[in-house]
């Protein structure tokens, strides 16, 4: 399987939008937090992550900084240099949507597996600071459709973001195991 083919296949011309469903688990939470919203790639290159439920929050990632807007609060700006996790989203997911293979290669080593109908692409961070907390990002897809982003931290549970068709199929699904299966594409069998 060829990583370059995947990168080219999943690229979407800007502006583009993709619905997502994300599950966030934490030992502090009774049950994983389930977020619904959409990722947008704007024509000017900004990547926007908009959460619709269970609350409204907009995170805009641009060159060097992130802006977080929440209902009833002043926007907060964070330098990407100080938040490697945010930079990882921009340089991983954002670069992938833009079809920017060069930026992707610059920040990650890529490992592709599977066939065109069902593939995975693993991104291993090159930046040692990021690698200290993030082991790898595993992308699951079918053909030109990127269906799930699985973030595997060095410590703790993987965090999953279901996209496009997988996000639609996840509507109404609350069981973590079922969602994990959806991410991996098992449910499609």
């Amino acid at each position: 399987m060829d990583a370059a083919w995947i990168v080219q296949a999943v690229a979407r011309p800007a502006p583009s939008r993709t619905a997502f469903v994300e599950l966030r688990s934490s030992p502090m939470l009774r049950q994983p937090l389930r977020l619904e919203g959409e990722y947008r790639r704007e024509a000017d290159g900004r990547l926007v992550r908009q959460v619709h439920a269970p609350y409204a929050e907009t995170t805009t990632l641009e060159d060097g900084q992130a802006t977080v807007e929440r209902a009833g609060r002043a926007p907060r700006r964070i330098a990407l240099a100080r938040a490697p996790e945010l930079a990882a989203v921009r340089n991983g997911f954002g670069a992938l949507l833009a079809g920017d293979a060069e930026r992707l290669q610059q920040h990650y080593t890529l490992h592709a597996e599977g066939g065109r109908q069902r593939w995975t692409l693993a991104l291993v961070p090159r930046d040692p600071r990021l690698a200290a907390s993030l082991a790898r990002i595993v992308l699951h897809g079918r053909g030109a459709e990127l269906r799930c982003v699985e973030s595997r931290p060095v410590k703790g549970e993987p965090q999953r973001t279901l996209l496009a068709g997988a996000a639609a199929e996840a509507a109404g699904v609350t069981d973590a195991t079922a969602l994990a299966a959806l991410c991996r594409g098992d449910a499609a069998r």
Binding site: I78, E85, A88
Partner: peptide, 9 residues
């Protein structure tokens, strides 16, 4: 909301 953000870690 912080926990639900990419900067949760």
């Amino acid at each position: 909301q912080d926990l639900g953000s990419p900067a949760a870690a």
